[in-house]
Amino acid sequence: MQSDAPRRPVTIITGASRGIGAAVAERLAADGHDLVLTYRDRESDAAEVARACEASGARVLLLRVDLADLDAAAAVVPAAVERFGTVTGLVNNAGITGRIGGFLDGSIDESELLFRVNVLAPIVLTRAAIAHMATDRGGAGGCVVNISSGAATTGAPNTYIPYAMSKAALNALTTGTSKEFGPVGVRVNTVSPGTTRTEIHAAAGRPNAPDERAPGIPMRRPGEVHEIAGAVAYLLSADASYTSGADIRVAGGN
Rank of each mutant, 00 (worst) to 15 (best):
Q2K: 12
S3W: 02
D4P: 06
P6N: 04
P6D: 06
R7G: 04
P9F: 01
I13K: 07
G15V: 00
G15H: 12
R18T: 13
G19Y: 00
I20C: 05
A22L: 00
A25F: 14
E26G: 02
L28T: 06
A29C: 09
R40M: 09
D41K: 12
D41V: 10
R42Q: 13
E43Q: 14
D45K: 02
V49A: 03
A50H: 01
R51W: 06
C53M: 05
A55L: 07
R64D: 14
V65R: 15
L67A: 11
L70F: 09
A73H: 03
A73F: 00
V76Q: 01
V76A: 08
E82M: 09
E82T: 14
R83Y: 07
F84Y: 06
T86F: 10
T88R: 04
L90V: 03
L90Q: 04
N92I: 07
A94S: 02
I96N: 04
G98C: 08
R99H: 00
S107D: 15
I108N: 15
I108E: 14
E112M: 04
E112W: 02
L114T: 05
L120Q: 08
L120S: 11
L120D: 09
P122M: 04
I123M: 12
V124C: 15
R127N: 12
R127T: 15
A131G: 04
H132L: 12
M133H: 07
M133L: 03
C143L: 10
C143Y: 09
S148T: 15
T154C: 05
A156I: 05
P157T: 01
P162N: 13
Y163M: 03
Y163F: 05
S166W: 13
K167E: 04
L173F: 10
T174F: 07
G176H: 10
T177M: 12
K179A: 03
F181H: 06
G182H: 05
P183S: 11
V184S: 08
G185Y: 00
V188D: 08
N189H: 08
V191L: 12
V191T: 12
T195C: 02
T195W: 02
T198F: 05
E199S: 14
I200L: 01
A202D: 07
A202L: 08
A203H: 11
A204Q: 01
G205W: 00
R206I: 13
P207D: 09
P207M: 03
A209P: 07
A209C: 02
E212S: 07
E212F: 05
I217T: 11
R221W: 06
E227M: 12
A229S: 00
A229N: 14
G230Q: 04
A231D: 11
V232G: 02
V232C: 01
A233V: 13
S237Q: 06
S241E: 05
Y242M: 09
D247Q: 15
D247V: 14
R249H: 15
R249I: 15
R249D: 14
G253W: 01
N254E: 14
